[in-house]
Design a protein around this nucleic acid. Structure first.
Lengths: 236, 236
DNA sequence: ATAATTAGTAGCTAACTGCAACTAATGTCA
DNA sequence: TGACATTAGTTGCAGTTAGCTACTAATTAT
């Protein structure tokens, strides 16, 4: 916290933890912090953005660095979630915060990194701006699930269809119908079966699949946006 | 342009102009500008964000002010489209730009305001960052059409269903099927008929409707997000 | 063996989309 | 005046898709 206010990049990194959607928070190290947690963040100096004219996108790279440092591993998906500059003070005093939302595969955090996974529905007290960022980031995560393969990035190279459905349900926050889910998935040519099967202890073993999107058959899909208009979401 | 780099708010304001989607640009007043156009923008001083703790969202208000000044009227819809800070220089030297996308009803621009509507498909040379902002803003505009009543904001208080469909086709950049469009609209309880009719010269007069969303009947819609998962958009 | 549990599939119905064809109301023009 | 063009608005049909219910399949627990 120098004299000149800086911009910051703040990350809402999500994972599946203990059958719940969890967000990564780190301990707030500033003096007046009393048992507080913050999102992982880093300042973005104005200098940086002017010096490296070659950089494809300064903000994206800064976000990737912050996520890597906080979680100990690369985020497997990361996208910008917006800029926040309302009055509520930022833990680091940043004038403006660029928020990112991402996912990373569940793994153990290194000890004493000061980071911890919190269930998204049970977060500790935080700075108002960080609370707002989390709300917006989780909302955008859900909206983007049908445009980016977020769910697949939360899984390993191979997975069962039940695992995939569980991730969708976790991220969307609602139950899905098994038969419909599989029919839609099959029709989208997104996964292909492997020769391996996975037995989880109880019940029938499940076949393992891998994410292997093939170019769409002329059907509905396609980037151009076919199909009718969806008026259903325009409540008020 | 003082010594300290500032942040900026840059607006991609759209309207229907001459049967085409048009973007509002203003003349670049800076010295080394040779016949160049830029998006309407304004600096956001770091001070502002710290002083007015009461302001709901500093950035949204700044964006609304910029749009009002450039177009001479309030934007009827406005949403944040992301933060941009790649190497490409900003016309005003801003280190970081927060982009907004909005729409405003077609109207005559005041004379000699330095602003002009350009067809979205035929834009003049601009700073690379502004070009990137426009691309991202128009993409987001299309994605948000089914979550926010953007099309209705481009129309007056009453409108014919053909006018509504034309706006949808303009913003989406593709043709829609008349019967399906109307059936979906009727099923969503979004508009209600008025007693007035509008005759456009040729052809049968059209009934005027007004935007009056009623709370959804138990059907598909609802904010909670019903319906199956849309895998079709996950190409690669 | 039998029950419990999980995986995976099939049939039915309801809803929705696109298509084609139709009726309705107005202006244009011979 | 009457045929024609133009735009509005509706209807019936076929194909597709989603959700529901119910079923079979394969494994572990008792």
């Amino acid at each position: 916290m120098r004299g000149v206010p800086t911009n910051s990049v703040d990350i809402v990194l999500c994972t599946a933890h203990d059958r719940q959607l969890a967000v990564l928070l780190v301990r707030d190290e500033s003096k007046r912090a009393r048992e507080r947690w913050t999102l992982p963040w880093a300042p973005v100096a104005a200098r940086d953005t002017l010096d490296h004219a070659a950089a494809r996108d300064t903000l994206d790279h800064a976000a990737a660095r912050v996520a890597l440092r906080a979680a100990g591993a690369r985020a497997s998906w990361l996208a910008q979630a917006g800029a926040f500059a309302d009055g509520s003070r930022h833990p680091g005093g940043a004038a403006l915060s660029v928020a990112y939302v991402g996912v990373t595969r569940p793994r153990a955090l290194g000890p004493s990194t000061g980071a911890h996974w919190f269930p998204a529905g049970d977060l500790p007290p935080m700075a108002p701006r960080h609370r707002a960022i989390i709300d917006a980031a989780l909302a955008q995560l859900r909206e983007r699930m049908d445009r980016a393969p977020v769910a697949f990035r939360l899984l390993g190279a191979t997975f069962t269809l039940s695992e995939l459905q569980a991730v969708y349900e976790l991220l969307l926050g609602r139950r899905l119908h098994k038969a419909s889910f599989r029919r839609a998935l099959q029709g989208a040519f997104l996964v292909e079966p492997t020769d391996e099967w996975k037995s989880e202890g109880r019940g029938r073993p499940a076949q393992l699949f891998r994410y292997a999107p093939r170019r769409q058959r002329g059907g509905r899909g396609g980037r151009g946006g076919r199909g009718g208009v969806r008026f259903e979401l325009l409540g008020g």
